[in-house]
Amino acid sequence: MNQGPIIFLGVYLAMALSWLGMVFVPEMQLGRMQETTVPPAGARYPAPRNGLAQEGRDVYRANGCYYCHTQQVRARGFGADFERGWGARHSVAPDYLYDRPVMLGNLRVGPDLANIGVRQPDAATHLLHLYNPQITAKGSTMPPYKFLFEKRKISGSPSPEALKLSGEFAPEPGFEVVPKPEALALVAYLQSLRADVPLFEAPLPLPGKKTGASSTNQPPAGATNANPAPAGQPQAK
């Protein structure tokens, strides 16, 4: 094997085959996916995110949220995603149709966020959690995102947007903490993360059927980061 061209040709062939198999074919299969209609009303799914949520996706990307949070619920039997109440059904390809970039994530230092908009619809709680996670989830290792907020002197009447902070987290008297536009956009994005529409390939479990996932979309009060599994309830695994 002393011929440079043979090496080049062989390597090129190997490269081209892997490109064909892992780039071209998936692109053909997935890259032309269209939105679908879902019963009963025949609504389009997925609906594109609204403008503010799209801006929020950029904040999510810029600050690397996807390095610690996944956005994918695995099928029943893979891990304990259902039992933890991270989604009513597993994630499927159409859920990500309009996302640029798609940030599935590979590591769960924090909980999965594929359905955070269902679990925690309250914007004020999200803002408190972003400002300082210790307020809403004591002991969390999530860093505070104070640069998404502005601490300013109260001039005139306090802003209605100001965070309701108390105790050790409150700013000095005469000051208030208000979210910057980035924080509001990020929260809009988090609220838009909800893959709870039943699809043909991923139906929702029937209510009443004992699956362990039926009551999991109810968030425990004030616990965005904590797992809602009650200790006494038998879990299906």
């Binding site: 997935l30 149709l97 970039p101 798609v102």
Partner: peptide, 18 residues
């Protein structure tokens, strides 16, 4: 396929993984 002319949906995740 990821940055300049992004693919649609999860094809991005496959290409990024590859």
């Amino acid at each position: 396929l990821l940055v300049y002319f992004p693919s649609r949906g999860v094809a991005q995740a496959v290409i990024a993984g590859w």
